[in-house]
Design a protein around this nucleic acid. Structure first.
Lengths: 352, 352
DNA sequence: AAGCCTTATCGTAGCGCTATGATAAGCCTA
DNA sequence: TAGGCTTATCATAGCGCTACGATAAGGCTT
């Protein structure tokens, strides 16, 4: 035979890999069409009870596991929600992610996780891969992103929720609270206790813009006070840890002779500061008042118990999930950008 | 025309949704075939430099984002690794997940996260959905799973890593350490300090089998001691929190008159116990020695600093990632189940 | 009983990509 | 210069599912 005929009647290619059980197999066993199986899986109410039972039986006898990848491709949108946080090690974000995850998994959505380590370029890369999953929604942390990230997301048409911060223009939706207001609340609290030489102890504020905003809100409220008061912002370039808190406290003690009020960028730092006060013989709250942020696990139990500001990562998570589900179900008021303020609560305990 | 001819020459269906830019578009612009673009994306070295440049240019002008869902379907295995932990709120797992994620993302793998809340049936459901992603690997926590979970995973042929525990028969691979040995180390340490009335304070040990194993390892080592020593295991049914630690300490003080050595199931509980000792006027380490587990952030800084056992969640994460990558690249010795012991280290500080 | 709705089910064309094997284009070697 | 080997590139058949539109089967009207 000649070459041209060879081109025409080609041998069927070897199939690469037969996967276990497909929807087709289920359909055959249940004596219905694949479409009906698919329909049953997506909207069980739409098929007749008889067919439904037949299909359910077939699924269980065959041990059928639907292939979400194929489904995602066919539906042009996969059942994943991509969440990008600065760090999962951070208890705040862990709580929120955990809550979002719980709420979404009830609706059959998966969570894909990424952490940016507070880098905007790294965040952009994560957004890029997130979008290659054709996700049902993307969740970002904060409102600060580089231009490319915003462009990518806007162009994608995917619902986007920015969480843990409000007070700027969101890409799409936002759930969180105002960080400057948190700083201001802390300042007012200390001022109301008669404290006049204040310090804000923060970590990694070059990158953690939200912490920086709490600091500046704090500083501004101090300036605005009726009685004259001073305020210094002290930053630790490393991570916000208990140890950083100890270091920061010592720096504050050195820099501010009459220091009598301290706000920490989070409760871990506050705990470190508290321990260091104890070591240095600085009485809390007698000589200095201490206010944290986050209301972590230990904050109510430590000695003295820690006055802190609770932002409720849990509530944020629930609201994020709610907005995502509403968007997916098309219940969202078109055109308006949705912003939910979850607020914050100052919890007064013994340290102030 | 009759019905049968109508069946034959049907109108082409409306396409549902055109996606932005496809590989085809890139191929057209770069004047090569789609296969070449695909090849370039997967193995850049395999295409000529000239074609590569052309393709790269096309990708950037069009802003092409590859569709991983389609890729996953075609390749019969998606670039996701599914990690199932009991809880992300737990600092241990957060650390490990974070590390795995970092290591894997360098190889273009995504992490899908699930949390089982210490429920085996919930874990099974998570494994089921995990498998519907045709994942490159599945990571589970611990060696205790229900029969169905094991069956599903074994049948799937997907690489499986069980982490944070060794000492049983893994489904496929395991990375972790022996929990009874951790308990035994803690017991030996307290005994060596002359402590004889010991207690193990744990939380949620009905569900947290690993904590329960640390407790029993502790109890057995105590029995085996040269000098006679007693040991009680006290369990708090709720979560392992600082507050649980306070409650547990009070119960221990009530139940054990001469209590002089305490091991806590984790450092959060130990911190709570430490605070409570301070409140109750129980001198640590003079009257009781205290040993924790986990070496969390605060353990070195608290007062007194906490003797603890470090399991190294970070190392576990790195090893898990290494095994996964080896499996994917087919560098794994066939047939052997791989088990990596990451060990544990007792860090002696002031609390003992 | 004809006509018109519903409702349940089906057939099939892609979704965008990768794997496979084929082909074309060089590049030696004899 | 022919034959044999590498590469580099290509054409195409699915991967398993969902969405679309069509069809069949009843159930009401009038």
């Amino acid at each position: 035979m000649d070459a041209s005929s060879d081109l025409q009647n080609r041998v069927p290619r070897k199939r690469r890999k037969m996967q276990r059980v497909t929807m087709m197999d289920v359909a055959k066993l249940a004596q219905v069409s694949p479409s009906t199986v698919s329909l049953y899986l997506r909207k069980p109410g739409a098929v007749s009870p008889a067919a439904g039972q037949e299909i359910a039986r077939a699924i269980s006898t065959l041990g059928y596991v639907p292939n979400l990848v194929a489904g995602g491709l066919a539906a042009a949108s996969s059942k994943v929600v991509s969440i990008i946080v600065p760090s999962i090690r951070n208890a705040f974000f862990a709580e929120t992610v955990s809550t979002i995850q719980s709420e979404l998994s009830a609706e059959g959505l998966q969570v894909i996780l990424g952490h940016s380590e507070y880098g905007e370029d790294q965040e952009e890369a994560l957004v890029r891969t997130a979008l290659s999953w054709a996700p049902a929604a993307v969740v970002l942390t904060g409102l600060s992103h580089n231009a490319e990230t915003r462009k990518l997301l806007q162009a994608s048409g995917v619902p986007v929720v920015e969480m843990w911060e409000i007070g700027g223009k969101p890409i799409d939706m936002a759930v969180g609270f105002s960080h400057p207001q948190v700083g201001a609340s802390a300042a007012r609290h200390l001022l109301s206790k008669g404290r006049r030489s204040l310090a804000f102890l923060g970590a990694r504020m070059q990158e953690d813009h939200r912490a920086a905003k709490r600091a500046s809100g704090f500083a501004e409220e101090t300036k605005r006070a009726a009685e004259p008061a001073t305020c210094e912002i002290i930053n630790h370039p490393g991570a916000a840890t208990v140890e950083a808190g100890s270091l920061l406290l010592n720096r504050a003690l050195r820099q501010i002779p009459n220091l009598d009020g301290i706000v920490c960028s989070n409760d871990l730092i506050a705990l470190g500061a508290l321990f260091e006060c104890q070591r240095q013989g600085v009485a809390v709250p007698e000589r200095v008042s201490l206010v944290g942020f986050g209301d972590l696990d230990f904050s109510a139990s430590c000695i003295p118990s820690l006055t802190t500001i609770r932002p409720s990562g849990d509530l944020i998570g629930r609201e994020v999930a709610r907005l995502i589900l509403a968007s997916i179900h098309g219940e969202r008021p078109e055109g308006t950008s949705l912003v939910v303020d979850t607020g914050h609560v100052l919890i007064e305990r013994r340290s102030s």
